[in-house]
Structure formats: C-alpha cells, structure tokens
Design a binder for these strands. Structure first.
Length: 954
RNA sequence: GGGCGGUUAGCUCAGCGGUUAGAGCAUCCGGUUUACACCCGGAAGGUCCAGUGUUCAAAUCACUGACCGCCCACCA
C-alpha cells in the first residue's frame, strides 16, 4: 500500500481510471447486483447525436444515486440505457451540416440522405455514451438500446399495427400545425407559444350589391392580425344575435384585392364584444375558421405553399414570402383606403419547438392517434396512486392534461425515423398495412419485412409505402417495454417490467411520461404478457419529476443562447463527484436550480476533505505499523464487520457516540432518498462526515490512535477504520469515484484491492504490500449500504458527548473573546448540572483539556462566580475562566446586557403562553411540558446572567 | 384567459404547524495544532414580500394583493 498520497485530491486521473474499469468489467450488469427485490429504471434516452448538458447531468446524478443506493441494498438492479433517434432534431442537424456545402436533402434523395444520417450517427452517436460513462452513470451497458435499431423498430411496427387494427390510429385531412421551415406537420405539444407585440388591422370589406359590385359606402370591418390570410377568406361571420349585423346575414361582401364575392354568415362562435364583432373566415389557415367552414360548407382556399410562400391561389401575391406578402397586402389595402385602423396587439404566436420558425395552421392529410380512450385508464392509475407522482402537484397537472387530451398527430414529413407501415394502392387508394411486425435487415438497417404486394380490395399491384415517418415520441412511448424485448415475452420483460421508477424533467411530462403511461397500459394488455391486472401493465410505479437547471434569469439553459454550461468542462475543473454533489445538494423536489459557483467550490472542498481524512488515516497508520500491527489486523473486511470494538474505560465514549451517529445518519439518509430528497441526504452526510467524523471523532481520537497501549490503540484504529468505511459507503451513491478510490485503499476481500495492485504496478513508491489476485468484481458499489443498527444506537452517548462539545465550544468562545494566546493553556472552573455530567467530564478530561486549550478543569459546586473571571452559563453547566488584565469589561457588560434582553423577552413570551389557559388545555401535554422546562431553564440562565452583570458593573 | 412555483442572513438556497429559524459562500476576529489554507477555532448578520384570517400556537395553513419565473390555452 503506497502511503504517498497527494495532499490535494486530484480527481481527473482517478475518475477516468474508475470510469473505464467499471465499464470494461461490466460492473453494473443487472446480473452483478443482488437477489433482493428488483429495482429497474429506464434512462430517458438522450438524443443520439447530442452531447451531455447540465440538465442531463442533474438527471443522471439523481438516477444514479438511487440506482447505486438500491444496488447497495442488495436489490436486483437494472438501469437500462439507450439513445433516441430524435427524428426531427437529428434530421435538422444533418440538414444544417449539408447546407454548409450547399446541399439540400432533396438533392440527395431519401435513401442517400438516410445513409448520410446513419453515417453521422455512427460518427457522433457515441459521444453521449462516452460522456455518461465518464460521469460515472452506473448503467447496464450490456443492455443498451437505440430506438431505431431492428428490435425496437419491430416494437414500433407491432404497436402501430395493433393501434391501426383497433381503429386508434387513423388518417385524415385536418388542420394541423405546420412548420414551413422543417416542412412537416408537428404535434400541438411541439408548438411553443410566445407572447409578442404585433399589430391588429381593421380592414373594410365592401358590401357587394346585387350586381356583384363593391359598395363604395357600405363596409363590414373585420379585425385581423394576419392580413395575408385574407386572400383565402371564403366568408365573413357575425354572431346570429347581433342586432348590428343581423340585416347583413345572407348578403355578400366583396373580398378586397381578390375581388371575390364571399357570403356573410352567422355563427355563434363569433364574440360580439371583440373588435367590431365581424370575423373574416379563412378555413384553410385558421383552426377555428376550419371548424366554421365545415359547419357552413365553405370552400377551403390554401393560399400558401408548404415552405411558407404565397401559392398560386394568392393571385398577384403568389411567390412572395408570407411576411413580405403581409406588408405588400397592407400597403395595397391602405392605398385603396380600406384600412380603417391599425393598433398594437399582444398575442401569442406559435413557433416550432425545434427551429423556432412561426408555425402555420394548415390543412393536410396526416396520421392521428385517438387519445381519449387511452387517457381513461391512464387517469385511473394516476388518480388511484398506482403510479405515484412526485412532487404531488405534478399529478394534478398531469390529470388536467389527460382530461383535456386531444388527438395526436403522429406523422411527420421527414426521412429520418420509423416509416409508417402502410401501403397505398395506386388504383383504388386502399390502405394496406404490413402483414405483420416482422422486420428484415437491409443495408444494415431494419425495415418492414411483410410487405403487401397486392391490394386486397381491387387486386392492384401498384402499392407504395406511405412516405411519412412517425413522431419520435411514438417510439419513445414504448421505451420501458420495447427495451426489455417486447413484443416478445422475454426474461427481462418478466423480471423488470413494470419498471420501478421513472425520473424525468417535468418539461417532458406530456411529451413522454404521459404517453408511456397510456401506451404501456394499452399495449401490455396482452394475455401472454400480463395477468391483465392494470398494475402489472403500467410502465413505472413511481414517477419523479426533477427540477430544471436554469440561468439566473430563470430561463432554461440553452447552448444556442450561450447560457449553457458544459458539464464535462466543469468536471475537469472541479471533479465529477463535486459536480454531482453540488447538483444533488441543490435538488430539492419542486424547485428549479440556478447554478452557483460557490456551491461547486464547496462541494470540491468536501471531496478534498474526504481525501484528507483518508490521508490522515493512512499516514498515521505507518506509526502503528512500526509497532508490528498490520493494516489487515485493523481494517480487513471481516475485522471491520465486527466493529465497534470495546475501548477500555475512559476512551469509550467517543466510539459509542460515533457508531450511534452512524446508525441515525444511515436512517436519515435512507429516509431522504426514499422521498427523493436528494438535498437532504447530501446535507446529512456532509455534516456527518465533516463535523462528526473529522472535527470531532478524528480530533478526539488522535491520542488513542497514537497510544503505546495496544489495548487502546488497536480497538480505536479498528473502530475508526470501520467508521470510515461506513462513511465511504454512505457517500458512494453521490460521490462514486472518490469513495471507490479510497475504499480500495482499505484491505478488501481476497487479501488485496485493485487500486493497491494497480498503484503498485505503476508506482515507484511500492512497498510490497498485497497481492494482485482479485476474484470477481470488487467494488464499493457492490457492497452493503449502511443500515440503521439498534445495537449501535446510544442516546446516552450522544447526549453526553453533546454536553462535552458544548463545554469545549464555550471555552473556545471565551478564549477567542478574551483574545487569549491560542497556544496558552488556561485553567477553568466548571459546575455541571446535568445528571451524570461531572462523571462524564472527569472521564474525558484529556480530550476536553486538549480540544479546549485548558490546563486544568476545577470541578466546583456552583459557588458564586468569582470576580475576575469570564463566565458562560447554560442550563447544563457554568463555566468560569479567570482573566488577567486582558478582558474588555465594557464588552462583557454589553454582551451580558444584550443576552439578558433576549432572555427576558423569551421568558416573558413563554410565561405568557403558559399563563394562557387555552394553551394549557388545548396544546398537547408534551408541548406544554417542554415549554415549562424551557421556561425554567431560561429563567435560571437569566438570573445567573443578572447577578453576573451586577458583579461586572460593581 | 386559466394553472403552477417562488419571494427567508450580503449572495445561492434549506426549513413548510410547536423550545432561541438553519447551511454553504461572502464578511469580521484569531490561528504554520506535520490529514486538509479546497484548512482550523471563534463571531457578527434575519419585522421569514405585504395585509387579513384560521389556530392554544403560523416562516410554515387559508384568503387577498404586489413583484419574479414557468406551464397550458383556437378569441379574430
């Protein structure tokens, strides 16, 4: 075991080494985990061509903490990783790349373009995986999946065909959201609304007389924010009960610029209060108008092209870009004197989630999925708690969305994705689905194998496959079971479905989480695969929605805006463990995270603290080894397992206290993790390690560890190693690298540890300890997580040590205030009121003197405080330290007065409460009692302080 | 237009019905105690956004308002 350890923890080398080892040894295969209850979780698949951003890191840290924790508790644990082909996002990236070379995808044709995307995927698709490995994600990489791989394509086919057969997937001509830039339909969810200040124009539509001539004097004034769509108007509408306009209904207006007569219709949709109460109706360019058009049988005139230009139907405006056309049209209307007014108008503009272009409502033929029938059982499982949603308010949001669910447009006019397995008959337009869900591999990629060759309706043989692909989220919706082998009845599916938990950001609750629930419940209702019981069909039993990482302004982190943070770079700078700790410690459920440099620095300092605690142990060990006591004797796994060891007499208290703390900290951490309170788990461990273990336990024990008396030294060493080992295990889920590294420096099964062997091999400092044989995977990640232990729990020890800590702190406080030379030891006079206090003080005199910097403690019986001393009184003890001529009497008086004031207020308020009959009768007895006790204590402190003040002032 | 979340120490955030409201960082004072200056010891710092109510008891629950942020929504 090399004892030469760097003073400051340098994470990079350590982390890379372990990340590589964990991956290469397949340490996190489910098969390497225990045989306890299973715990399974599917990774929200990142975009295959993306790279890790801080949001991923937060998500992966939280998942990894829970996965490691469950694994260490002996559960059969699977974290299944994989990537999403992210249709539109990936295609967008590749198109942008091609554009640099002046190439459009249409120039290449579908097959060649797909080939290029695959190539791009091959080249850059591994980045995320490498990064995840580097960041310590304990996934089972042997089960990695990709949404576009053959097995998952098959799952998609299977699901599609089944929904299609059941009539849940249909095709039709409806108004959809169209992105003119991506040139595809997108779903409602992919439209992001932004408030913008635009203009609203009031435009005069002249009435048409019986000859079809526009009236020069009579107009109906319509309001519009989108003048360019007026070219496609096929009516104007008023409210049927609107007296102002009743007489016009059934007449016609002359559509300006187009000189087309259009009818004036009455429809209750019109809001009489808004604008003039007259609405232009453009069925081809507005969803409401589309509905009205259907009701009144109006023609639909599409005046735009798919790429956002004006179409032939726009007459002389044909060919103009849509917003250029708007300007031209307004100008022309002004010239004709038909613009009555223009006003500023704030309205929400829909933009494409992916490319930010303004979305155009457009009529087109698309594929849809009926959602209402799927939403019902989803609501049921959420409402009944079969899927527990955390935080709870997200449950309401989810249920609300399910209540108002609308059909889902699942087809995309893209080339990168799962192609719709429907063939169209050229002769009779019949739609023929693939025969079954089998796939064949062509050119390395999967496609439907069961291709129809003859139209079952007309016998025609000219069948062409639908050119659309499916929305990426369709395959994502199958993720929890498609990745486990569905539609086959596999061992993994049986063992790990339903998964235990889904952790995702709340930003994709509707996109993904809700759809998995709906699709899972529906598709798993297969007699071969489930009992039919809905609780066995849900995709996950718990749904935890994590926070989002935001910028100081509250916006989402964004690479394009330059507000993104590269986690890999931060990792280099501070260490992965530090970054993980920082993220976890800020991850209180339900609140978003704003990164702060301070918190990373403090996390890095924490890692360093852990490192240095280990350095202390190993450096000091040499001394005891010099006396012929081996590390194996002190810290072998079987030795650690039997801790705590009794330490004779006086030295025992700190050990009893430490193990008692370990037990309660274990309980607290487990409880916190159980409730996804990562921040609480972190804080608990932090304080345990830094304050309890380092500041008190190590400091307390230093003489014991150096003792010549083997009967003291050996058990003290054994205990501290055992406690340190337990602390490492407690810390491991959040800080996997440093804990793995240090744990391997302790003796492990097989007589040695890998790090020792490896370090030996590469180190000139090797001193020849240990051998290199390591049977089986050996990692702290596969060890037991510390559990609460009733044998360790020792409230008396905790209370006694707390008393001593208070005394020591009080002395330090006095010393600091009196500005006593830190090296100078002074005598103190102490009165202890606690029951066994005196005894406790006497039997721990050495650490008290040492840690408080005292030369002696004189235990007295509460005589009046001698003059010429500084006094500190609490309910449990009075402390007096004599001063020479150094003390600032004025400051002492001021301090005493302030304290008296505070206590008086406190006592007064307590007395008032206790005098209140309502309080005494209604509050629980224990509350009243503790109030009573506190009052007495405070009262005692107060009177002591008062006499102290009198003394000082005399 | 609906819904959700936030407002607590100089900063970033915990606490969410019961003793004297906490942490990290920053600040101030003091320290080369050979594990750690990414450290050690000590201190100071808060009408818990405002108001009203519920309660024996409110930072914590309810209502109202202000400001900040997010999500959803077809009013031209």
């Amino acid at each position: 075991m090399p004892r030469e350890i760097p003073k400051a923890y340098e994470p990079n080398e350590v982390e890379q080494r372990w990340a590589k080892a964990w991956y290469e040894e397949k340490l996190f295969r489910a098969e390497n985990s225990g045989y306890g209850p299973r715990f399974s979780i599917a990774l929200p698949p990142p975009n295959v061509t993306g790279s890790i951003h801080i949001g991923h890191m937060l998500e992966h840290t939280q998942i990894d903490m829970l996965v490691r924790w469950h694994r260490m508790r002996g559960q059969r644990t699977l974290w299944l990783p994989g990537m999403d082909h992210a249709g539109i996002a990936t295609q967008f990236v590749v198109e942008r790349m091609l554009a640099k070379g002046g190439i459009k995808r249409q120039d290449l044709g579908r097959e060649e373009f797909e080939r290029r995307v695959w190539k791009w995927k091959q080249e850059s698709g591994g980045v995320i995986k490498e990064q995840m490995i580097r960041l310590g994600a304990s996934c089972d990489w042997t089960r990695e999946r990709f949404t576009l791989e053959p097995a998952l394509y098959r799952a998609v086919l299977h699901a599609f065909l089944r929904f299609y057969r059941e009539g849940l997937i249909y095709r039709g001509r409806y108004m959809v959201n169209w992105c003119p830039r991506c040139q595809t339909a997108i779903s409602d969810l992919e439209v992001v609304h932004h408030e913008r200040t635009g203009e609203i124009w009031n435009i005069r539509y002249p009435l048409a007389d019986s000859d079809g001539k526009p009236s020069a004097t009579e107009f109906l004034v319509v309001a519009t924010t989108r003048p360019e769509t007026m070219l496609g108007d096929t009516a104007v509408a008023v409210h049927p009960d609107d007296d102002r306009y009743r007489r016009f209904v059934g007449k016609k207006v002359m559509l300006p610029l187009m000189n087309r007569e259009i009818p004036i219709i009455a429809d209750a949709y019109v809001d009489r209060e808004f604008g003039t109460g007259v609405v232009k109706i453009t069925p081809a360019h507005d969803p409401n108008d589309f509905e009205i058009g259907k009701r009144h049988n109006l023609p639909e005139i599409d005046v735009m092209t798919p790429d956002g230009h004006m179409s032939e139907a726009a007459g002389k405006y044909a060919g103009l870009e849509r917003f250029a056309a708007r300007g031209r049209i307004v100008a022309d209307l002004k010239e004709l004197g038909l613009v009555e007014s223009v006003k500023e108008h704030i309205h929400a503009v829909g933009t494409c989630d992916r490319c930010k272009a303004i979305v155009e409502p457009r009529i087109s033929t698309q594929w849809f999925m009926k959602m209402a029938p799927l939403a019902e059982p989803a609501k049921q499982v959420v409402r009944e708690g079969l899927i527990e949603v955390v935080p709870d308010n997200q449950r309401t949001i989810l249920l609300n969305w399910l209540d108002n669910i609308r059909d889902w447009c699942i087809s995309r006019q893209l080339w990168w994705g799962h192609r719709i397995p429907i063939w169209h008959c050229a002769d009779c337009k019949e739609m023929v689905p693939a025969g079954d869900s089998r796939v064949e591999i062509v050119d390395g990629h999967a496609r439907a194998a069961s291709v129809p060759t003859q139209c079952p309706k007309c016998g025609g043989s000219k069948l062409t496959q639908d050119s659309d692909v499916l929305d990426t989220w369709f395959s994502s919706g199958l993720w929890p079971f498609s990745t486990l082998g569905w539609p086959d009845d596999t061992k993994d599916l049986r063992e790990f479905y339903p998964t235990s938990l889904l952790i995702s950001g709340y930003d994709i609750l509707f996109f993904w989480d809700a759809r998995m629930i709906m699709m899972g419940i529906h598709l798993m209702a297969d007699p071969n695969l489930s009992s039919g019981d809905i609780s066995t069909r849900i995709p996950f039993r718990q749904l935890y929605l994590h926070s989002l990482v935001r910028t100081a302004e509250g916006a989402k982190m964004s690479k394009t805006k330059g507000t993104g943070v590269d986690p890999l770079q931060m990792t280099q700078q501070y260490g992965t463990d530090a970054l993980r700790y920082m993220l976890a410690s800020m991850a209180a459920p339900g609140t978003d995270i704003i990164l702060s440099e301070d918190r990373v620095l403090s996390a890095r300092a924490f890692a360093n603290k852990i490192w240095n605690a280990a350095r202390f142990l190993f450096l000091n060990l040499e001394k005891i080894e010099g006396r012929g006591i081996s590390l194996e004797e002190l810290a072998a796994p079987e030795v650690r397992a039997r801790a705590p060891y009794p330490v004779p007499g006086e030295a025992a208290l700190a050990h009893r206290w430490m193990f008692s703390r370990l037990s309660s900290v274990s309980a607290q951490v487990s409880e916190a993790l159980e409730g996804f309170r990562f921040h609480e788990a972190c804080q608990t461990i932090y304080h345990f390690f830094w304050d309890d273990f380092c500041d008190w336990y190590i400091e307390w024990l230093k003489p014991q560890l150096a003792a010549e008396n083997r009967d003291v030294a050996i058990p003290a060493w054994r205990n501290i190693f055992a406690a340190f080992d337990a602390a490492l295990r407690l810390l491991h889920p959040v800080m996997p690298f440093i804990t793995e590294e240090l744990w391997h420096r302790l003796p492990q099964r097989g007589g040695a540890s890998r790090v020792a062997a490896e370090a030996l091999a590469s180190s000139q400092l090797a001193d020849g300890v240990g051998d290199t044989a390591t049977p089986g995977p050996l990692s702290i990640a596969l060890e037991d997580y510390p559990q609460p232990n009733s044998d360790w729990s020792d409230p008396a020890a905790e209370s006694e040590l707390a008393l001593l800590q208070e005394i020591i702190v009080a002395v330090r406080n006095v010393r600091a205030e009196m500005k006593i030379d830190p090296k100078k030891k002074v005598p103190a006079d102490l009165t202890v009121h606690a029951l066994t206090g005196e005894e406790v003080v006497n039997s721990n005199l050495e650490p008290i003197l040492r840690l408080a910097g005292l030369s002696s403690v004189n235990i007295s019986t509460g005589l009046p405080a001698p003059t010429g001393a500084v006094v500190r009184s609490t309910a449990r003890f009075d402390l007096r330290i004599a001063y020479g001529d150094v003390v600032d009497k004025g400051a002492e008086i001021a301090k005493a007065k302030k304290e008296i004031e505070r206590l008086e207020k406190d006592v007064a308020s307590k007395e008032a409460r206790l005098a209140d009959e309502a309080f005494r009768s209604k509050a629980p007895a224990e509350v009243v009692q503790s109030m009573e006790r506190a009052r007495v204590e405070r009262q005692g402190e107060l009177s002591k302080l008062r006499s102290r003040l009198a003394q000082l002032s005399s």
